[in-house]
Design a protein around this nucleic acid. Structure first.
Length: 294
DNA sequence: CTGCAGGCCGGCG
DNA sequence: CGCCGGCCTGCA
């Protein structure tokens, strides 16, 4: 099957997509945008997207996705992996902006911004505050095992991410088992707020970026950084610039040449990178982590 | 034993 | 408003 520039083959193990460029699974899954893809010994990744469990492999511009057919490619994966965006063009534009980007981009040449479920991201990034990535992954997994739906496969049992209804209806002391500490009460409160329609996650895409950010910040445990992560990694807004300690440090070292406030960084990113701020953030974040700049 | 991690909240000046 | 202390938990 040919679909929007890609050739897709289907067999009994899944689908294979040819002609995938600017794509590297490690860059995609190890740049902090997703917490539910686990690297396997053979270099592939296993993950749960919605109620689907799949294994993905990539080599020689060919992307293999298990447990999937043509319809899944069109309805799920094409959008999920942002295959409709020309990252070659984005990288070219960003490289021409300044020497820092030209230096950073080759480190994460295969980065893609995943379009993930915004509800799952909301809870995942509430957990991320002042936390470490391995612990965030454990908490998300425990929440899924405890309150999600079981998916039995030949490769083991997996769990969907729990719905707003499931999380909002369980008492706070049950949320505590995910070991997210003080963030558990944020999870509980935010679940109730979403269920009650205080914030409608589906309408954020139609708002101006600042308005959408303001809506998310109404939720418990969501500040500016977490809000920007949610907007960016759900594919809702791309002109945001989530500034965590790594991004702050790398901008201070490579751009400002001095200490800078979060407000200064926010203003700089919007002025300098404009509509590509979110993409620039990902390349800089990966570069910062890889080179351990401090 | 201290220090600290992909920030946020709440209280204070 | 802007600033700053405290914070679950677990690992170094």
């Amino acid at each position: 099957m040919d679909y929007k520039g890609y050739t897709v083959y289907e067999n009994n193990t899944g689908i294979e997509i040819e002609g995938v460029r600017d794509f590297d699974l490690m860059h995609i899954f190890d740049c902090g945008q997703s917490f539910r893809w686990l690297k396997q010994h053979d270099g592939s990744y296993m993950g749960v997207v919605g109620d689907k469990v799949s294994r993905v492999k990539f080599e020689n511009e060919k992307l293999h996705i298990s447990n999937s057919n043509f319809d899944d490619f069109i309805n799920i994966w094409y959008d999920y992996f942002d295959l409709g965006t020309d990252y070659g063009e984005i990288k070219k534009t960003l490289c021409s902006k300044d020497d820092v980007m030209a230096q950073a981009i080759p480190f994460g040449q295969g980065i893609r911004l995943l379009r993930q479920d915004i509800w799952e991201l909301l809870i995942s990034f509430i957990i991320s505050a002042n936390n470490r990535i391995p612990r965030i992954m454990k908490s998300v997994e425990t929440l899924s095992q405890s309150f999600g739906s079981k998916i039995s496969t030949e490769e083991g049992e997996f769990y969907t991410f729990p719905s707003p209804e499931a999380l909002s209806s369980c008492p706070i002391n049950e949320i505590d088992i995910c070991k997210a500490g003080f963030r558990c009460k944020y999870i509980s409160q935010t679940s109730k707020m979403v269920r009650n329609g205080v914030v409608d996650l589906d309408t954020l895409k139609n708002m101006e970026t600042d308005k959408a950010r303001g809506e998310l910040i109404k939720l418990s445990g969501v500040g500016p950084k977490v809000a920007d992560c949610i907007l960016l990694f759900s594919g809702t807004k791309f002109d945001v610039f989530p500034t965590d300690v790594w991004i702050k440090r790398i901008l201070e070292v490579l751009y400002f040449k001095r200490e800078a406030t979060l407000k200064e960084i926010d203003q700089f990113s919007k002025k300098h990178f404009g509509s590509l701020a979110g993409y620039a953030q990902q390349y800089l974040f990966f570069f910062a982590r890889e080179t351990r700049i401090r």
